[in-house]
Deep mutational scan, measured.
Amino acid sequence: MSIQHFRVALIPFFAAFCLPVFAHPETLVKVKDAEDQLGARVGYIELDLNSGKILESFRPEERFPMMSTFKVLLCGAVLSRVDAGQEQLGRRIHYSQNDLVEYSPVTEKHLTDGMTVRELCSAAITMSDNTAANLLLTTIGGPKELTAFLHNMGDHVTRLDRWEPELNEAIPNDERDTTMPAAMATTLRKLLTGELLTLASRQQLIDWMEADKVAGPLLRSALPAGWFIADKSGAGERGSRGIIAALGPDGKPSRIVVIYTTGSQATMDERNRQIAEIGASLIKHW
């Protein structure tokens, strides 16, 4: 067993022997301040990774656009098919120029040779490549099948209805392509620590998230040296922004954090800054 596999296998073990965790309302004060600064709703939840206990939450059962955070769930569904012998990570998928959609920095470079399922998941999570996500959605049967996968996990809230990039439209009061912070946090925890996926697939999923290259201005910008984070960000229309993450000190994750916002007129930089400040408060009061 590799060191990384050992780390993920012992996530519940280490967490069980940690000192009790206590909620700190100071972080919620910052979440509410972010709402004021952005002029928009902000949803927040913080779960203990081992027990699933909610440590703090704000608007945990209000719907927010998922945006690209759905790509972690998508690759979880792909990995479940791999575990069941219905898919192979090494299978190569070929596609054409007509398949390319807006923001496809990886797939646009491989029109000639195609990409493997493993490479597509890596591109979808680490670079948020939209064509990679659409190609992977095709392998599982489309958005409705991802929703069905989530329902089978016990998540009857999260739903995907459309493809990239239309799913980022974020129309107010439109339930399409949305989740709730509580539902997303619980589902992410199941994917990373539950028995739904094999140990190898859980490790692969967290490795992809740990290698995320496009979430630097968010929670990662607030992390002290030595902290662990595996995350996936999302951005959408109407001032929408979000991030889902597993993080913790001492090089291992111990909490799940989900943050979503929508309806702001603020710039992307300002949305990023507010999420980073929430992260800084979380870490300060850990």
Score class of each variant (00 low, 15 high):
201 S>V: 04
282 L>T: 09
203 Q>C: 02
130 N>R: 00
134 N>G: 03
94 H>S: 12
263 G>A: 08
124 A>M: 07
104 S>L: 01
102 E>T: 12
280 A>Q: 15
254 S>N: 13
63 R>F: 06
8 V>S: 15
75 C>H: 00
126 T>I: 09
211 A>Y: 08
282 L>K: 02
45 I>G: 03
197 L>V: 06
204 Q>Y: 09
221 S>F: 09
31 V>I: 11
105 P>Q: 06
216 G>S: 09
225 A>P: 15
237 E>N: 14
105 P>Y: 05
73 L>N: 05
213 K>V: 11
216 G>T: 10
20 P>N: 13
245 A>M: 04
82 V>G: 05
215 A>H: 04
3 I>T: 10
91 R>G: 05
163 W>F: 15
257 V>E: 02
221 S>Q: 13
6 F>L: 10
105 P>W: 04
226 G>F: 06
250 D>S: 14
238 R>I: 08
189 R>H: 13
108 E>S: 11
201 S>P: 03
93 I>L: 12
186 T>D: 14
245 A>T: 05
257 V>H: 01
88 Q>W: 12
17 F>S: 08
282 L>I: 12
189 R>I: 07
151 H>A: 14
148 A>G: 14
77 A>P: 01
125 I>V: 12
277 E>K: 10
247 L>D: 00
51 S>P: 03
110 H>F: 11
265 Q>P: 11
164 E>P: 01
208 W>L: 06
117 V>H: 03
65 P>I: 03
272 N>P: 01
95 Y>T: 03
243 I>A: 04
207 D>R: 12
93 I>M: 03
266 A>R: 13
200 A>L: 10
66 M>I: 11
15 A>T: 15
44 Y>Q: 01
260 Y>Q: 02
88 Q>A: 14
6 F>V: 11
271 R>I: 11
16 A>G: 15
183 A>I: 10
206 I>C: 13
41 R>G: 05
275 I>E: 01
257 V>C: 07
5 H>N: 10
231 D>M: 04
62 E>V: 08
272 N>E: 06
196 L>M: 13
165 P>V: 09
79 L>V: 06
139 T>E: 15
175 E>I: 14
176 R>S: 09
30 K>Q: 09
44 Y>S: 01
36 D>N: 13
28 L>Q: 08
235 A>F: 02
182 A>C: 13
176 R>V: 06
44 Y>D: 01
217 P>S: 10
220 R>T: 03
102 E>Q: 15
142 G>I: 01
182 A>K: 14
241 R>T: 05
201 S>R: 06
204 Q>V: 11
107 T>D: 01
13 F>T: 12
165 P>W: 05
190 K>E: 15
217 P>V: 09
18 C>T: 14
57 S>T: 11
108 E>R: 11
142 G>S: 06
173 N>E: 14
284 K>C: 10
217 P>T: 11
224 P>T: 06
100 L>Q: 05
44 Y>T: 02
176 R>M: 10
72 V>P: 13
112 T>V: 13
230 A>G: 12
278 I>Q: 00
177 D>P: 01
10 L>P: 08
162 R>P: 01
183 A>P: 07
182 A>H: 12
236 G>R: 01
247 L>P: 00
227 W>R: 00
166 E>M: 14
86 Q>K: 12
145 E>P: 09
38 L>W: 06
216 G>R: 08
119 E>T: 06
111 L>G: 06
125 I>A: 04
44 Y>I: 08
96 S>R: 12
